[in-house]
Design a protein around this nucleic acid. Sequence first.
DNA 1: GATTTTAATGAACACATGTTCAATATCTTA
DNA 2: TAAGATATTGAACATGTGTTCATTAAAATC
Lengths: 189, 189
Amino acid sequence: MCANDLRIVKTKQALHNALLTLLSEKPLENITIAEICRVAKVNRGTFYLHYEQKEGLFEEYFQEIMEDLYNSYEEPYRAVTTLDKNQLDPNTIRIFHHIERFKMFYRIVFSKNVPLTYYYMLFDGIHALMKRDLTTHYNMHDEISIEYYSAYQANAIIGLIIQWYRQDFEDSVSTLNKQLAAILRIGEK
Amino acid sequence: MCANDLRIVKTKQALHNALLTLLSEKPLENITIAEICRVAKVNRGTFYLHYEQKEGLFEEYFQEIMEDLYNSYEEPYRAVTTLDKNQLDPNTIRIFHHIERFKMFYRIVFSKNVPLTYYYMLFDGIHALMKRDLTTHYNMHDEISIEYYSAYQANAIIGLIIQWYRQDFEDSVSTLNKQLAAILRIGEK
DNA sequence: GATTTTAATGAACACATGTTCAATATCTTA
DNA sequence: TAAGATATTGAACATGTGTTCATTAAAATC
């Protein structure tokens, strides 16, 4: 099972394309493995050689999107020049840009019939960034577990995103930024 | 489709019992509708008369557990007498007791192959209680949307619960209470 | 208790799932 | 380029899904 065997690359590509095609027609829950294989012209047995469920295929896409989340944290703060930098840690603020950019995907991630896996992928991503920030920028009270605190903060952000998603991302990114900034300011005074 | 027709009551009861029996043997994801019906001695067609998926059946259970969450908020603060009441709003603190009490169920709710539905049921429950509290006890800054703020706070709590779940609920309820109290205290100074 | 209403059943259907296995096609590497 | 390695295929199989429909059984109502 060598990952860069041309046959494997070709097969996976075909399956990826097939999934994308089908996703433009109907939601993930209504897409069957058999259907993906028919479109991809790949034997159904071959699918099971690489994935267990159609969710695993979607997961590979989501992996790439998570890469974008990580990368957007590494690059300089280009995206936030319009924002008052004193209001909030610009790192935090980048999340909403990222969500907005891939909202087509996040509509799937947050739909209620989809497995929790994707939620956890997002949670783990934000959680890791949060933890990194908390350990370097702030000095912690030792009564608070860094794990619990960062889980709290990370999921709080996702709470905003859920609310945002439920209005089909109608509010602007800057509205979300302002809301978060205002919420964080409550604690400070 | 009269809900208190004895035949319907009997059928649903049989399906509920069958699901409980099977859940003690294996995870929800490995249980099939056909299996539930075999154990319940109910025709498979009858299942589809009442539910769409096995998840709908589980949802009925979870509904009852959500009732417990609501009820525990209405009754007087019996459960928190040992806690220093000055530290934190006792309302908030009840959540962890509730989770602990039904941790068998929450192990399912938070498992990664289960649909997001149950997560949202929990989220909506806490969110509603949070919103009620925020509107009555605090006077809000009008720059902050109460919807966003309560979604933020509600999901933050669930963040702690996720972290707790991932250690298989090894920490005690009082540890969780203390962590939350400490986190909330950060904002206040 | 007889009549009416309706839930439950069993059978059948097309299709999806998940797995196996020998045969084949395609890639790697020597 | 030939030889060996291995991914893919097609066929088959048992089982699950979701739906339909006439028949039967068990409730509700009178």
